[in-house]
């Protein structure tokens, strides 16, 4: 079931067409990643879904009902969390719950519950202005959840956080899956891979791909790059390596680079198969002193290039 559906949304600002007729849907109970570089149209799309701005043309449906000027029942965390720095965390969450029609009898209970869920129990009586960036982000997520919305939209919730906080926020988002439908934007494909069941890729105001991550990954991941660093390597010509491995596994290109007494090898193949077992077996057989072995992920830019090229 589609909880959010955008149909042919166009948004123009003076001199700029930010969204050029985008259409996609978010399935109920999914964690939907919204990927795109800066200026792709992510924030504009999310603002429209959250009811903060209206599209120039097109329709937005929330739970099958067309979104008009009425308030949409969506929890929203913008890129900069909307926080009143002079308020205590408890008072702030209580205020947000109150203005979002949470019954007076449930207020305190609800705030404490969300505080616990978002890991804010220890800082409930502290001023928001004195909190670290990680905690402020959690408060931002808590305000989006405190009135128990069915749909939660998070605009780049992990930007600018340290690695520990990023992991905690990701765990928090994953834990929300059972009660909410979540849509969140990110720059990082890796992040989307970790927690999303569905993704939508947008660039220059156009949707490049949208759907279950497995299907999109499959359609994109027909290229594998394996990087190996070895200590003892005698062959300098890539062509010779290619002729050696041509019967072992499919490989389109090999790059060889000398680095401080070590050699970096890159095996590049346009294939759906995983070449890691074959490449590692080949290198072990060569007894070349394998120092490191990694698969290079495609970065978002590369994906955009590939998707745009398709």
């Amino acid at each position: 079931m589609k909880v959010i559906e955008l149909k042919n949304i166009v948004k123009t600002y003076p001199g700029v067409e930010a969204l050029k007729g985008i259409s996609f849907a978010v399935e109920k109970g999914s964690i939907h990643g919204f990927l795109g570089p800066n200026g792709a149209g992510k924030t504009t799309s999310m603002s429209i879904i959250a009811g903060l701005s209206s599209p120039t043309s097109g329709q937005v449906f929330i739970n099958g009902k067309e979104l008009g000027r009425e308030k949409s029942p969506i929890g929203f965390l913008p890129e900069t969390p909307p926080l009143y720095e002079q308020m205590k965390v408890f008072d702030y969450l209580k205020f947000v719950a109150e203005i979002n029609n949470v019954a007076r009898s449930e207020l305190s209970c609800r705030v404490l519950e969300i505080g616990k869920k978002c890991g804010l129990t220890k800082v409930m009586q502290r001023l928001i202005g004195n909190l670290s960036k990680g905690y402020r982000q959690r408060v931002g997520i808590a305000q989006a959840l405190v009135f128990d919305p069915e749909i939660v939209i998070l605009d780049e919730p992990t930007v600018g956080l340290d690695p520990n906080s990023i992991m905690e926020i990701r765990e928090l988002i994953t834990s929300l899956k059972k009660d909410h439908t979540i849509m969140f934007s990110t720059h990082q494909l890796h992040e989307a891979n970790l927690i999303c069941s569905h993704i939508t890729i947008i660039n220059h105001g156009i949707i490049l791909q949208s759907g279950p991550i497995g299907e999109i990954g499959k359609s994109l991941k027909n290229r594998q790059v394996i990087r190996a660093v070895v200590r003892d390597w005698q062959i300098i010509e890539p062509a010779m390596v290619l002729s050696e491995i041509k019967d072992l596994f499919p490989c389109d290109n090999v790059e060889i680079k000398k680095l401080d007494g070590q050699t970096e090898l890159k095996f590049i193949a346009e294939t759906d198969d995983d070449l890691r077992p074959s490449v590692s077996a080949y290198l072990l057989q060569k007894n070349c002193g394998l120092l490191s072995f990694t698969e290079e992920g495609m970065d978002l830019e590369e994906i955009f290039k590939r998707v745009a090229g398709q």
């Binding site: 308030k71 913008p78 979002n100």
Partner: peptide
């Protein structure tokens, strides 16, 4: 400037 106006505008108020 702080982005909190949207919090109010999106609320039940």
């Amino acid at each position: 400037k702080l982005g909190t106006l949207n919090l109010l505008l999106r609320s039940g108020l």
